[in-house]
Nucleic acid binder design. Structure first.
Lengths: 190, 190
DNA sequence: TGTTTAACATACAGTCTGTCTGTATCTGTT
DNA sequence: AACAGATACAGACAGACTGTATGTTAAACA
């Protein structure tokens, strides 16, 4: 069984990220210990601290991977060319679909901000939901006077989407939130 | 120096809450140890674990007290009778003022949700900002068809306020966010 | 092929949390 | 007022966890 070092490292990293992800989702960051993580991955703590700076660094890798997958899921939901309004609303649905995957709200909306800080989470958000929303809003408001507010509105609405995802996970009716968001969006153009 | 037990307990609780608050704000919940807390309060860990179930229970007391003070601050900002639109916008400014007090965003928006969970934080929010916002929206939308959406909109806008408070603390222009919120509010009635 | 370096495993030190036990002060009762 | 019980702490203790330091094996490279 002769493997290259690069292969070993990469598969080990992925195994640790996967094990960490499962436990962070199940028990939260604070209640997950590094012995548990490496035990689940079938290795020792030496491997963990060889590939990651500390427990927080592993968590960051988990969150970044998850954010990337969410961005992919949203992009995969083809934004049919039905105009900016429809694009935003379809994007909203795609976001809710993506955040419905178990554990994602906890990783990105609860533990993430506390463990990694608001600045790092802002940077991660910017690459995913916030950016596409900003573009959608720019297209929507292109003829209006408050075009320069697109960025600010994207940030605010992105926060609203997040809270909606949390509420939906708790059992709230998804349709209510989609309607409410639609009314907010439509209000910007009327 | 003869003191009643009730007095001792109450002053001790307040001292622990105050010491905990200072450290939770300065270093965050995870990086604050109970020895530090009791050291700052000038007592021992025995006192802490006599009055609180555990570290998390003290944190909950800190957050609840802070949320109550924020609610007071907002209520103190007299909602002059200028109609529902103005009431909501004034409430927004009062909320930003309240959240500008150092540490409040960290306590309520970053550490709170991760440590106490979204359900407990929802319950705390409901008593403070969300409730007044909901009433304002109900008044604003009383003649419109989507009156029953006031609650959902209150939740969404409350989340937007929170993110705005975080952005403002990071250095963003407060006026931009007040304007953006005003445009969202006005869009609901036009 | 020998030497350096990367990829781990294992041992260790320090700290923290929650509990348990002990002591002094207060409270209620007779 | 004195005693019994409860309350309010202080201090000691056990277990667990984090990060580091050291050791070992296998790959990389010259």
């Amino acid at each position: 069984m002769r493997r290259t070092n690069k292969d070993r490292s990469e598969s080990m990293r992925q195994a640790l990220i996967e094990a960490g992800r499962a436990l962070f989702i199940e028990k939260g960051y604070a209640d997950t210990s590094t012995p548990e993580i490496v035990n689940r991955a079938g290795v020792t703590r030496g491997a963990l601290y060889h590939h990651f700076e500390d427990k927080k660094d592993l968590f960051r890798a988990v969150v970044e991977r998850e954010a990337g997958e969410i961005a992919n899921d949203i992009d995969a939901a083809a934004p049919a060319d039905d105009g900016p309004r429809q694009a935003i609303l379809e994007g909203t649905k795609a976001y809710f679909d993506a955040m419905a995957r178990p554990g994602r709200t906890r990783l990105l909306l609860l533990d993430g901000p506390a463990v990694l800080g608001k600045d790092i989470m802002r940077a991660i958000d910017r690459e995913t939901s916030e950016a596409t929303l900003k573009h959608g809003l720019q297209a929507l408001l292109s003829k209006s006077d408050n075009k320069d507010n697109a960025e600010t509105l994207a940030i605010l609405l992105s926060a609203a989407f997040d809270r909606a995802a949390l509420a939906i996970e708790t059992g709230a009716e998804r349709q209510r939130y989609e309607d409410a968001i639609a009314s907010l969006i439509d209000g910007l153009t009327d």
